[in-house]
Each structure stands twice: as C-alpha cells, then as structure tokens.
Simulated scan of single mutants.
Amino acid sequence: MAIPTTKDELISAINGRFAKLDAALDAVPLDIADERSMEGHAKDTMMSVNNLVSYLIGWNELVLKWLDQDAKGKDIEFPEVGYKWNELGALAQKFYEDYSEYSFEENRNKFAAVKDQLVSEISKRTDEELYGSPWHGKWTKGRMIQFNSSSPYENAKGRVRKWLKSNAG
C-alpha cells in the first residue's frame, strides 16, 4: 500500500489495515491470548497477543492526545511526557501495564473504539492541515498519525500471523 498523502488515503489505510489485523486477531484462541510467547517491543522481552493489542491502544490514545494538545495550541512533548524516541521499549511496557487488567476481548473492543475515534478526528481535518506543512521535525501531521496507527497495525498483523503458525496449531 502506498504511503497516504491525503485525508481519504489515510483513513482508508487505517481502516483497511485495522480490518486485516482484526481478522488475524479473530483467529487467536482466547485461552492463550494472555500467554507471553511473542517477542516483545523491548529487547529481550516477551509479550502476549493481549499486550500487543494494549500497545496499539496506547499508541492510538497517544496520537489522540497529540491532536487534542495541538488543537488547543499547547506544546506537545513527543512521543510522551517522560519518554524519548529512543525509549519506545519502555513506553511499550507502560502500555502493556496500562491495559493489563482487561481481557483480550475487552482490549479488542477498546482498540476498535479508539481506532474509530482517531478516524473521526482525522475526518475533522483538511488535507492541508494533515499534509501541508511539517508538524514534528520534517514529518507532517498525517505522516505522524500514519507512523503510529496504520503502520503498526500492519506490523502487528504480521506478528500475529507468525505467532499463530507456531502457537495455535
């Protein structure tokens, strides 16, 4: 899939990649969704499929926070307060913990809801706002959204499919 350069392409990428990931998640047996048998986001760590969904929820909520802060004219501390871009493994661990009390099914529902909220927020913006000028470093708002939504969905789909081959028969 080409890199989105318009609002419609970005929404299509998010929805399309979400649908493919969601279909892969449908194949995950509930009784092993919390087993830490998948390579984690931080070096030498393991995570569960439920942790992977938690990670995606965390990133989507973080993008929504960026958009909200931007809309209010506030400075945004990328990627998150207390974390630097070279500390994303630690941020992933935080996301796993943030949603650890929820079942795989509950987290899948949260993930679908936050993805829909993100699409709604994107829908309110123009192509010019999303792609007309740099927002963080050299990256436009649309590209930053894509880096932290549809691209990780694609990566997660590959991880789930690989994991299913070795863990779900």
Rank of each mutant, 00 (worst) to 15 (best):
N60C: 14
N60I: 04
N60K: 12
L62C: 15
L62R: 13
V63I: 09
L64S: 14
K65F: 12
W66N: 08
L67P: 11
L67S: 08
D68L: 15
Q69K: 14
Q69S: 15
D70R: 12
D70T: 13
K72N: 15
G73W: 14
G73E: 11
K74H: 14
D75G: 10
E77A: 07
F78S: 01
P79N: 09
P79Y: 09
P79R: 02
E80R: 14
E80H: 09
V81G: 08
G82F: 12
G82M: 10
G82N: 08
Y83W: 12
Y83K: 01
K84W: 10
K84M: 11
W85R: 07
N86I: 00
N86G: 06
E87W: 14
G89W: 06
L91Y: 02
L91R: 00
A92E: 07
F95G: 00
E97K: 13
Y99C: 05
S100C: 12
S100N: 14
Y102A: 06
Y102L: 09
S103K: 01
S103T: 06
F104C: 02
F104Y: 12
F104K: 03
E105D: 10
E105W: 14
E105A: 11
N107D: 09
R108K: 00
R108G: 03
R108L: 06
A112N: 13
A112K: 15
A112F: 07
A113Q: 05
V114K: 04
K115W: 03
D116I: 06
D116T: 12
D116H: 09
D116F: 05
D116G: 10
Q117F: 04
L118W: 03
V119I: 13
V119T: 13
V119F: 09
V119Q: 10
E121R: 10
S123T: 09
K124F: 03
K124L: 13
R125C: 00
R125Y: 00
T126G: 05
T126Y: 07
D127T: 00
D127P: 01
E128W: 04
E128Q: 11
E129H: 04
L130P: 04
L130R: 04
G132M: 04
G132N: 03
S133R: 13
P134Q: 06
H136W: 01
G137I: 00
K138T: 12
K138E: 15
K138S: 07
T140G: 02
G142I: 03
G142R: 00
G142M: 04
I145W: 01
I145G: 11
Q146F: 08
Q146C: 11
N148W: 00
N148I: 10
S149L: 05
S150R: 12
S150K: 03
S151Q: 11
P152D: 07
P152N: 05
Y153Q: 02
Y153H: 09
E154N: 02
E154W: 06
N155Q: 08
N155R: 11
A156Q: 00
K157L: 08
K157H: 15
K157G: 05
G158M: 05
G158Y: 04
G158D: 07
R161H: 11
R161F: 08
K162D: 13
K162Y: 11
L164R: 12
K165L: 10
K165R: 08
S166D: 10
S166R: 01
S166Q: 02
